[in-house]
Design a protein around this nucleic acid. Structure first.
Length: 111
DNA sequence: GTAATGACCTTGG
DNA sequence: ACCAAGGCCATTA
C-alpha cells in the first residue's frame, strides 16, 4: 500500500546524503517542492527507524544545525556518536561548521 | 469526521 | 537584536 510516497522521497534524499555531510529538514522539503511542509519531513524521520533500509536520520538536523531529533533516536547519544564518526564535530548538540558540511539537495541534485 | 500534536520554518512586534 | 506567534502538511487519538 504505497506508504506515503512523501516519506519514501524523504528517505531517498536522506540516503543520498554523502558521508560527513548534513542537511536540514527545510532543505529536503524544499527539494521535494513542499518547503512549507518541513514538519512533515521531520515526521517522516520519526518512522525512519522503522523503515527498511534504515535511514541515516542522524545526518538530518534543523536549520540551526541542532540535533533536535537526537532525543527521538533509539539512543540519544547515538546520533552524536555517528556524526563524530563521520568527521563531523558536534558540540552542545550542535553541528560545528554546519554551513560548511551543509548538503543541499536542491543545489547538488536538482542544481 | 473533528481536534490536537509534531525530529520545522518564516515572519512580526 | 531578542521574543513571540502563525502556518504548512501529514499522522494519530
Amino acid at each position: 500500500m504505497a506508504n506515503t510516497d512523501f516519506f519514501e522521497m524523504v528517505y531517498a534524499v536522506v540516503r543520498l546524503i554523502p558521508r560527513g555531510r548534513v542537511t536540514s529538514y527545510g532543505a529536503i522539503a524544499n527539494y521535494l517542492g513542499t518547503k512549507s511542509s518541513a514538519r512533515v519531513v521531520g515526521y517522516a524521520m520519526n518512522a525512519a527507524g522503522k523503515v527498511k533500509p534504515k535511514v541515516p536520520a542522524h545526518r538530518v538536523v534543523n536549520r540551526n544545525g541542532m540535533l533536535t531529533g537526537k532525543l527521538h533516536f533509539e539512543h540519544p547519544h547515538q546520533m552524536q556518536e555517528l556524526l563524530e564518526k563521520e568527521n563531523i564535530e558536534v558540540k552542545n548538540d550542535q553541528v560545528m561548521n554546519f554551513e560548511k558540511l551543509f548538503w543541499d539537495p536542491t543545489s547538488e541534485l536538482e542544481m
